[in-house]
Nucleic acid binder design. Sequence first.
DNA 1: TTTT
DNA 2: TTTT
Lengths: 155, 155, 155, 155
Amino acid sequence: MAKGVNKVLLLGNVGKDPEIRSTAGGTIVASFSLATADRQKDQQGNWQDKTEWHNLVAFSRTAEIVRDYVKKGTQLYIEGKIQTRSWDDKESGQKKYKTEILVNELTLLGGAPGGRSEGGSGGYSKSSTASFDQRTPSSQPDYADQGITDDDIPF
Amino acid sequence: MAKGVNKVLLLGNVGKDPEIRSTAGGTIVASFSLATADRQKDQQGNWQDKTEWHNLVAFSRTAEIVRDYVKKGTQLYIEGKIQTRSWDDKESGQKKYKTEILVNELTLLGGAPGGRSEGGSGGYSKSSTASFDQRTPSSQPDYADQGITDDDIPF
Amino acid sequence: MAKGVNKVLLLGNVGKDPEIRSTAGGTIVASFSLATADRQKDQQGNWQDKTEWHNLVAFSRTAEIVRDYVKKGTQLYIEGKIQTRSWDDKESGQKKYKTEILVNELTLLGGAPGGRSEGGSGGYSKSSTASFDQRTPSSQPDYADQGITDDDIPF
Amino acid sequence: MAKGVNKVLLLGNVGKDPEIRSTAGGTIVASFSLATADRQKDQQGNWQDKTEWHNLVAFSRTAEIVRDYVKKGTQLYIEGKIQTRSWDDKESGQKKYKTEILVNELTLLGGAPGGRSEGGSGGYSKSSTASFDQRTPSSQPDYADQGITDDDIPF
DNA sequence: TTTT
DNA sequence: TTTT
């Protein structure tokens, strides 16, 4: 029986090809960003588009679905929970925080140019080595860097 | 018509008395933290309680309700959206991020020791000047510090 | 300030072209059905698809969006609330109930064959006169039949 | 992987003591009604309270929690999905429909007069034989009446 | 009645 | 970094 509620619902487009890793214990981990577009009125009463970026993480079976079906541009509906991880930045000595959405459920909506029906055709690679999230500086909380073990997997 | 979905649902207890401020334009702003309790199985299969803390912010009418009815310990259900603000830390020169929940709707559930019907009796102060969230270091993004103007209010 | 929560989130496909009407007071009303697909394990442990049908109703601005962009097959995400209307069946004298989702927010996801960019091409009519929902017998609760006035519009 | 979304979130108070039954296969079934209060403006611009009643059903472990902790007046937050069952009314020969919320998750909020900490003291009985929902006429879809077998349990 |  |  739940004691509280911590639920997030997002519908938007994936910013980059997901990054797939494994923990020492063999659990698959998928990380990716999702953009949600918002239409809101500005001070002048004009409608403005505003994009909010979210950091998402998925484990195990959900991570496999992400690995197999999700890429840059994919339109996605997800349900998850908010989690904030913290760590000590080695450089500055400051405590740092990263808020992520742990994805529990996921519905593919297609919608991407060259979308999921594309079949992995040329000029496209899932094993992108490009840095996934430029917002996070060098001292970012990488699961590996933090010596994440399977104790940290939330189930 | 919405172009995406960015929705958060939280049910939990308020960590401290909310902090109430105003923008230069006179918009009331309420900031507070909310703890959501989670029960999940650990590696040994035992149920573990885990608390997740969320930073919430409310504006205008919703902020007034927070000011008038919400305090430390209040049990609350809220709906809102995720927003991440960023700023340059003056000390370290690093870019910093703070993820907050912008509260749109709020349902009071009572449940606080000496709850909302108490009427602000002794030993208790809403105008707490104590640092609101110890997790955030000295270089935290204060709306005032960042020269927040009414252009930043999201409506 | 809300006193309770009554929220519905649906993502699925529209079953028929929406039916558009107006109240005596000129409020536009859109009615349509939405199918949500579910995948669940049966007794033998096999995955089974199951479709659930929902009756949706939208008013005013939201109804205009439905009228202009939604048709048979459109993939849609909606937020709304559950409402059950009741009336006395003239034939049987029994009290009858119809549960509907009052749509507050709506996100178009395209996805229909000959989707929303089609532009109303041939063999297609919004002003379908076909009975909208066969599940409801002749004594159905039609807004007009019930002498719905603008007092009944929930805002 | 989900193919659609069918999600309901309710926060309100239980109308009567839940009705507890078992299927032939031994699955526990709990049925109860939940009232959600809404505050909305009427035509004159005055705030009006409006109560919406929902029929809820829970199975297995969730039904046990309902049996053990939920009674008339209990304040509850639930998550579930909408399901409409249909059957042929033996009397009138008409097809009838009943929309229910299948409860997946449940958070107790207490709040009831003589609430969940009461311990089942006198003058109070969970095994109420009183008709559960007066809105439903004599030809209501009872799980037993319909010869519900364990094939009908949705998992 | 939808859709994949 | 996405998308329309």
